[in-house]
Design a binder for these strands. Structure first.
Lengths: 326, 326
DNA sequence: TTGAAAGCGGTACCAG
DNA sequence: CTGGTACCGCTTTCAA
């Protein structure tokens, strides 16, 4: 089913059909009706590829995330998508599973779509990618990775601040043996988080500590906790790099008979919606994902790029999974 | 950056560039190298729209789901995506939020992409949509809704069976006051589930029961439970239409001081991965989402459509959220 | 082994 | 108001 067939059947030119379908340019009311009717009858659906090719300006935003199954990323995607669709834009996502090679492939693939903007919300990075992207004139937003540059704006969360607050809070509750559970310790931003933990903890001379790492997600969290406990270390508090992993950590603790928070306190990071539904409700650090999604939209579409850095202040949320050290 | 620019710079025709980039047709080794080098230098990225338009056969699958934030749908998407990308296909998703109008829009939008196949994993339906789709020659898979037809295959879960098992199980544990928590009670498949509950329960003459409905998701589950308890009815078991809502139901029960399962038993449906990480681990009915994702792929791509019905047998998984009636 | 050129299905400008 | 037509950027014959 093509525009031409519709045109033929309606006895008009393709130009006219295009005009009525897109409400562009004047068309006699009667003609309009006729075309509309035929298009309806034929169940005509414009070929999007032809449309884009001919059309010029792009109507799609690209978004690359590390792990779409982690609600943190999913939430950002959903709010971006919401804002975008309100403006008549579509957003296509791709998930890299934290692999730099997939990130490169994803970026190339997105670029092939000639997007109106690109959001790169990932933890992995490939140095040459930065150069490549810097040269482009597509508006880009990075989260966590990258540096501001022409047409590139960065969104960064003051992770240290959240971490610091958390450690101080736990310390005040009497905790002196803490562990950090993370994932992909080799990737820049994630390594940095681990280091932040280490740095923070060292300012308290009398705190024993350790860190473990496993896959992102509840299962990874569970395995990490398992490793941790198997090592013989007995933390009274476990700080997780994100809520998603914290879910698994709590499960493993319970399976091994530890009460939360009576015997072990657990904290997360992100404040995914699930975190207040689990039991005990998770003490965590809020990162305003919906706000981030909207920001991404604004930077990409309304500011049409710009450049610079946006800092987000995370906020400690005390709930039920933490308490006085035993 | 276009093919032509690459061609010009490499001193060859666009045809040749196309050949080397796609590895189609013979090209002298030296020419190939030169073209490749230039393409690299120019960071050439083919325009996907032009490619598709010229190319002919589609390399994309469309998938429409009711609520991408519900892990049930997300899991199916991820496994389909996995299978597809292994075969060099991409899949684009759209989420309807259970609105029939959005379903219609989503289908049209997908059709505009001239997909190689379309998966419609939703609970809402629009009668005229069925006709429209039946006329098409695109392979289609429905889950939950629709009827088999030419090029249309249906995947259905024997919901009654799972429900029956669950009720029997709870009955055997002594439960005589049960409630069903659902969402979108007006939509066919969901209404059917509620009815299944009602039908099943009626075969046990001495069971008091009721049903409530709210939005899909933990928050909806919480609100539903709130309503339920506010009504004065005191169920000893609450059966949820899915795990996602069950999370919220459990939270509300606890907030109101009920112990699970000592005072109230809770069951879910789907067996999303989260269900074994929450506390208490959720008794639920397994629906093999990854298998469904793979099936969708096979039907769409390998069988290139076909038609018929695929039945899936769900299985009760007893975990910690259910126990003897108090 | 390579190039010229005809589409693919639209959009939009220019005449009429 | 409407039609003719030149692209958009790539793939794919068909000849050379």
């Amino acid at each position: 089913m093509t525009l031409e067939q519709v045109a033929k059947r309606a006895g008009v030119s393709t130009a006219t059909v295009s005009r009525v379908l897109n409400n562009t340019g004047p068309v006699r009311e009667e003609t309009r009706r006729r075309v509309l009717r035929v298009a309806e009858e034929l169940r005509y659906q414009p070929n999007r590829y032809a449309q884009r090719l001919a059309g010029g300006k792009s109507r799609t935003l690209g978004m690359i995330v590390s792990n779409i199954e982690n609600p943190f990323f999913l939430d950002i995607f959903c709010s971006l998508e919401e804002a975008a669709s309100r403006a008549g834009l579509e957003v296509v996502v791709e998930s890299t599973n934290y692999e730099a090679s997939r990130l490169v492939a994803a970026v190339r693939s997105m670029l092939g779509r000639r997007p109106a903007g690109l959001a790169v919300i990932v933890s992995e990075m490939e140095p040459r990618l930065m150069e490549e992207l810097t040269a482009l004139d597509v508006p880009i937003v990075f989260y966590d990775v990258g540096r501001p540059a022409h047409n590139i704006t960065n969104i960064k969360v003051r992770y240290e601040k959240g971490m610091q607050r958390t450690v101080e809070y736990l310390y005040a509750l009497g905790h002196r043996r803490m562990a950090f559970v993370g994932h992909h310790a080799g990737l820049g931003p994630l390594q940095e988080r681990r280091n932040t933990f280490l740095r923070t903890i060292k300012s308290f001379a009398d705190v024993e500590h350790t860190t473990v790492s496993n896959a992102d997600g509840p299962e990874g969290g569970r395995l990490a906790a398992h490793q941790l406990l198997a090592s013989g270390f007995r933390p009274t508090a476990i700080l997780c790099v994100n809520d998603f992993m914290a879910l698994g950590v709590m499960r493993e603790l319970r399976d091994q008979g530890f009460r939360i928070p009576a015997e072990v306190s657990v904290t997360g990071f992100d404040n995914i919606r699930l975190s207040e539904f689990v039991y005990p409700a998770l003490t965590t650090v809020d990162i305003p994902r919906r706000r981030i999604g909207r920001m991404v939209f604004e930077v990409l579409v309304q500011a049409e790029g710009g450049s610079g850095e946006i800092l987000i202040e995370p906020e400690l949320l005390v709930r039920e999974s933490t308490g006085r050290a035993p």
